[in-house]
């Protein structure tokens, strides 16, 4: 058996993917715990038990994500930029531009035709345009984060929101709520602010088709649609697996390559 695993410990969530012969046999996603090691263990355990495996069955494991240096059981760690690139590639072999919006930052990565990272940029020093931003706003609107995306299509008059600062945006949102704006209009404004932020990054790495999205925010159809409008490009849907686990998938693929002595 050549079973490999990828473990992606992010700031908001931890993801694990177990692969065998290029197929995902199990995956798990949990909210991050107080430290990366705990998150990694828990998410890995869940993925293993789903597949009826134990850690001993894993021939090679690669860690990635914010907490990757603090995971004891991995054989090697690789940056999430490379892993998201590789994971997106597995999800869509034509992927050349990847917009990854995670809990803590937002990245745009451009790949060459072989899937190597050519250029990447990430937003710096600010929570705006990240999963955290969306989470804070969802909490203010008192709706589950999963429902944020659908607000855009319900809205007829989206508000314009500060796209530069989470703190100020909160103040604005409270003001909009108090002045009786519809939740969907505010939500649509939030999604569109996120999209604008991500579009700047994507444009600055230079866009090549296919454009794909990974990370939790890829599941927010409001952000995706706004981004398509802003970029003037179709964003390829990736149905093979949850785009939020793309980093872990990439890590598992790197693990497979390491095992096969490639890369």
């Amino acid at each position: 058996m050549s079973i490999v695993a990828g473990c992606d410990v992010g700031s908001l969530t931890a993801k694990a993917v177990i692969m065998e012969k290029g197929r995902i046999i199990s995956s798990a996603l949990l909210r991050s715990k107080t430290n990366p090691q705990l998150s990694a263990e828990a998410v890995m355990q869940e993925a293993l038990s789903k597949a009826g495996l134990s850690m001993d069955d894993i021939r090679y494991c690669i860690g990635t994500g914010y907490g990757r240096k603090n995971i004891s059981f991995v054989d090697k760690d690789i940056s999430e930029i490379a892993c998201h690139g590789r994971g997106a590639r597995w999800l869509n072999p034509g992927a050349r531009t990847i917009i990854d919006i995670g809990g803590q930052d937002c990245k745009a990565v451009r790949l060459d035709k072989d899937g190597n990272v050519v250029k990447f940029v990430a937003n710096d020093k600010c929570a705006s345009g990240t999963g955290r931003f969306l989470e804070v706003m969802a909490r203010l609107l008192d709706i589950p984060i999963e429902e944020m995306g659908s607000l855009s299509s319900k809205s007829t008059a989206p508000i314009t929101l500060s796209s530069t600062c989470t703190v100020w945006a909160q103040a604005d949102i409270v003001k909009y709520i108090n002045s009786g704006h519809k939740i969907e209009d505010i939500g649509a404004g939030v999604n569109s602010a996120m999209a604008k932020r991500a579009a700047i990054l994507a444009n600055s790495v230079g866009i090549e088709q296919d454009v794909c999205m990974t990370g939790g925010v890829a599941k927010n159809e409001g952000v995706v649609q706004d981004l398509e409008k802003l970029l003037g490009k179709n964003i390829k849907k990736m149905r093979k697996a949850d785009p939020q686990i793309a980093g872990a998938i990439g890590a598992a693929i790197f693990a497979m390559e390491s095992l096969n002595g490639r890369s």
């Binding site: 314009t160 929101l161 500060s162 530069t164 600062c165 100020w168 604005d172 003001k175």
Partner: peptide, 12 residues
């Protein structure tokens, strides 16, 4: 750039 602070907030 009223995206930094909306005019309404500034006026308030």
């Amino acid at each position: 750039d009223d995206r930094v602070e909306s005019w309404e907030a500034t006026a308030a």
